[in-house]
């Protein structure tokens, strides 16, 4: 386990930017900003236009850490407190879950909640509960 500092102001500022980006995408393209949907659509694009905006959005996202580096002089912290096999297993399970659940933290947790979508509120509650339960089991049952 790796301890992390409580960062309410940075986290709030980051959240505000995430909400702003979601608003801007709705204003320009009329779409919700769900990472799952954007990624899934990029792999099976409906048209060249469809591929174009998804690739541009993804490229912009991946420039985020570089912009952070330009200002802060270092890459944003990415601390992975688990083994590589666990990371791969977790990633695979996330991929299966978000496909069947039609969304993830950004799509359901931010955009859907902001639209007061009943489906998204239920989905968010569902994954928040199982995430907390999984962390509890991994750290306090097996982790000891």
């Amino acid at each position: 386990m790796i301890e992390t500092a409580f960062t309410p102001f940075q986290s709030l500022a980051g959240g505000v930017l995430i909400g702003l980006a979601a608003t801007l995408l709705m204003w320009t393209l009329g779409r919700v900003m769900g990472a799952t949907g954007i990624l899934a659509g990029l792999l099976a694009p409906a048209s060249l236009y469809d591929f174009g905006w998804r690739a541009a959005l993804l490229a912009g996202m991946a420039t985020g850490p570089i912009a952070y580096f330009a200002v802060m002089g270092e890459m944003p912290p990415i601390e992975v407190p688990i083994s590589t096999p666990m990371l791969l297993i977790g990633g695979f399970i996330v991929g299966v879950g978000v496909t069947f659940g039609s969304g993830c933290t950004s799509g359901h947790g931010v955009c859907g909640m902001a639209r007061l979508s009943k489906r998204s509120i239920v989905a968010t509650l569902s994954f928040m509960v199982t995430t907390a339960a999984t962390v509890y089991v991994v750290r306090h049952v097996f982790g000891g």
Partner: peptide, 24 residues
């Protein structure tokens, strides 16, 4: 919806990355 989201949570709780966190 509910089962898929529950499964997503299990993966997120193991890996700590969600798609919106990992892509950037």
């Amino acid at each position: 919806l509910i089962g898929g989201s529950a499964v997503f949570g299990i993966g997120w709780g193991i890996a700590g990355f969600c798609p919106g966190g990992a892509l950037p």
